[in-house]
């Protein structure tokens, strides 16, 4: 079930949005930009936790899909991707790939483009869930 290629992550971008942790595979992130209010309409990770948006960093994929997070850091060391429990499979619009244990904490690892799409599909201004 767990493919070896998939179970290893060669660096991740560890992000925080409203105190919550998020991680994206570094390979999926094409560029990191600064995002501020009134900028491009990019889905904000805060909306996933029903929080109001605020300026932050913009992660853009190769395909041009992006997600705004509050802060981020990049973990270069490779880590094992922990499989997602069955009750969570298909969560976050199917963008959840698994979990990563880093900094003594557990991080959900998300597919950047899919998560962007998932966020874009949510109700505007993150009012819904």
């Amino acid at each position: 079930m767990a493919a070896d290629a998939d179970s290893k992550l060669g660096g991740v971008v560890l992000c925080r949005a409203g105190g919550h942790r998020l991680a994206f595979p570094a390979s999926q992130v094409a560029v990191i930009e600064v995002w501020s209010e009134g900028g491009r309409p990019i889905p904000n990770a805060r909306e996933a936790y029903a929080l109001p948006t605020q300026p932050g960093r913009l992660l853009l994929s190769d395909t041009g899909d992006g997600v705004v997070v509050d802060t981020l850091e990049v973990a270069t060391e490779s880590a094992d991707l922990l499989p997602s429990p069955r009750v969570l499979v298909g969560g976050a619009g199917g963008s959840l790939r698994g979990f990563l244990s880093a900094r003594d904490q557990l991080w959900p690892v998300l597919q950047l483009a899919d998560f962007s799409l998932y966020l874009a599909g949510l109700e505007p201004s993150g009012a819904g869930r």
Binding site: H20, L22, A45, G91, A92, G93, Q105
Partner: peptide
């Protein structure tokens, strides 16, 4: 401390 999963239902 638990890690919240984006888009997960509230009982999770």
């Amino acid at each position: 401390e638990l890690t919240r999963v984006p888009g997960a239902p509230s009982h999770l």
